[in-house]
C-alpha cells in the first residue's frame, strides 16, 4: 500500500510529462507541416528542417526532468 503523498507525486510526474508532450505536439504540428512544405520545394534543407522539427521536443525534456526530480528527489 503506497501512502497519499507518493500517489500525488506520481500524478504530478505524470502530468509534467503528459502536458509537456501535448504542448510539444501542438508546436510540432505547424513546425512539421512547414518543414515538409519547405523540403518539398528544396530537399537540400532536410537537415535544417529536421533541427527545427525537433526543437519543441526540448519542452518534453523539461517535463521529464521535473518528473524525475519529483519521483527521485521528492519521493526518494
Amino acid at each position: 500500500m503506497v501512502d497519499e503523498g507518493t500517489g500525488l507525486i506520481a500524478i504530478g510526474a505524470g502530468l509534467a510529462v503528459g502536458l509537456t508532450g501535448l504542448g510539444a505536439g501542438m508546436a510540432e504540428k505547424d513546425v512539421g507541416a512547414a518543414a515538409v512544405g519547405a523540403i518539398t520545394e528544396d530537399p537540400s534543407i532536410f537537415g535544417k528542417a529536421m533541427i527545427f522539427m525537433v526543437l519543441p521536443e526540448t519542452i518534453v525534456i523539461f517535463g521529464l526532468v521535473i518528473a524525475i526530480m519529483a519521483i527521485f528527489v521528492m519521493g526518494g
Binding site: D30, A33, A34, V36, G37, A38, E41, D42
Partner: peptide, 13 residues
C-alpha cells in the same frame, strides 16, 4: 486550412 504547409511552400517559391 493547412496554412503552415502551404505558406512554407509559397515562401520557398
Amino acid at each position: 486550412g493547412n496554412y503552415a504547409y502551404t505558406v512554407a511552400r509559397v515562401k520557398a517559391k
